Structures are given as C-alpha cells and as structure tokens.
Computed example of a mutant assay.
Amino acid sequence: MPTAAKLFGAMAFALMAFFTAEIVKPHMPESTNFGYMSAVAALVGVVCGWMVMGPTAGKGYYQSVGAGMKTAVVTAAWALFIFAFEAMLRQTMRNMYDGPMEAVVDVARFFVDYGAYLFFPDVATVLLVGGGLAGMLTEWAAKRWK
C-alpha cells in the first residue's frame, strides 16, 4: 500500500544513493567508465527506500536513524551486487572465463573490490549520515501524513 512515508523514503534514499555514487567516483581509477552508475544507484535507492525504510517508519525518530542507516547499507550492498554482476557480464562478453563457475566467483571478487571504495571516510560519512537523515525524513513524513 502506497504511503507518504514510502514515497519520501524512496525519494530520500534515491538522493542519498546518487550522491554516494558521485562521491565514490573520484576515488576510482581514472580509466573507469562510469556509464549510468549514479542513475542505477539512485534507482536502487528508490527501491530500497520504498521497500526497506518505508514500512519501518512511524516508530520514532531515534529508531528511524538506525533504520535509515540499515537501509543505506542495504542499498549499497544491492548496488554493489548490480555493479559487480555488470562487470562480470562485460568480462563474459570478452570471453575471459573458462566456465560459468569462474564467472560466478568473479562476481564475488568484483563485489569485494568495489566494496572497498565504501570505506573511504567521505564516502562512508555520506552513506551513513545521509542514511540517518533520510530515515528521519521518512519518519517525519510518516508522522505528518498518518
């Protein structure tokens, strides 16, 4: 059921994911082709904001900060998986793998490699503080339009 909290959660986490992706870009190698990285991250933020944060709204501001940080980490994990899977598909198109198991294992390697960029202080700050603020905005919408 659509609610104002789910809508605000979707919008807030889309912004948080978009800005997190933008903050990550300077840390990556110069030869990286980013393509639709920020847009894909924002789309993942919409889905996670709607499905993860939206239903947990209405329990108070204190809990909304924790729920927002949890949603931010879930958003980052799903975005990392999507980017790792896309990198594996790119490698597959170049016939870089001898078998399907090697490709599946490489998804995990890409996930860990890309996940390392989240531990830069500015990226982690945007991710966690932005998640907490997005959670508070979602809570505000839940209380405002109950």
Rank of each mutant, 00 (worst) to 15 (best):
V24Y: 09
E22G: 03
Y36H: 14
L15D: 06
A79T: 14
V123E: 03
V44S: 01
K146A: 15
T138W: 04
V65N: 00
V74R: 00
F18L: 08
M11W: 10
E30H: 12
G45V: 01
P100G: 11
A103C: 08
M136W: 02
F8R: 11
D113Y: 13
F119K: 04
M136N: 10
D106P: 07
Y97H: 06
A67D: 04
E139R: 05
M53G: 10
V24H: 07
W145Y: 15
M88N: 08
P55F: 09
L89T: 07
Q91E: 09
G66W: 01
M88P: 05
T75Q: 14
T20K: 04
L127K: 02
K25H: 10
A5E: 02
T3Y: 03
G9R: 11
F18A: 14
D106H: 13
P100F: 11
V46A: 07
P121E: 06
L128W: 05
L133G: 07
L80S: 08
Q63R: 15
M51Y: 08
K143F: 15
P121S: 06
E22Q: 05
A103S: 08
Y61D: 04
V129M: 08
A39L: 12
T32Y: 14
M37S: 12
G132W: 00
V46C: 07
A57H: 01
Y62P: 00
V105W: 07
L133R: 06
G60L: 01
A76P: 04
M28I: 14
V123D: 05
T92D: 08
A17S: 05
G115M: 03
I23T: 11
T32E: 08
A72W: 02
A5D: 00
G54E: 13
F85C: 01
A57M: 12
A5R: 04
N33T: 10
M28H: 13
M53W: 06
F111P: 00
R144W: 02
F120L: 00
Y62T: 11
A41S: 02
I82S: 02
W50E: 11
Y62K: 09
F110Y: 10
K70A: 15
V129Q: 03
T125E: 13
F110G: 05
M1S: 06
E139M: 04
E30M: 15
K6S: 11
A103K: 06
G68F: 14
P2F: 12
A57L: 11
A103L: 04
T20F: 00
A108D: 13
Q91P: 12
V73W: 10
E102P: 10
W78E: 07
V74A: 15
A84N: 02
A39Q: 06
G68A: 04
E86M: 15
M11S: 13
V126E: 15
P100Q: 13
A87M: 03
V44L: 03
E139Q: 05
L15C: 14
L43C: 10
S64G: 11
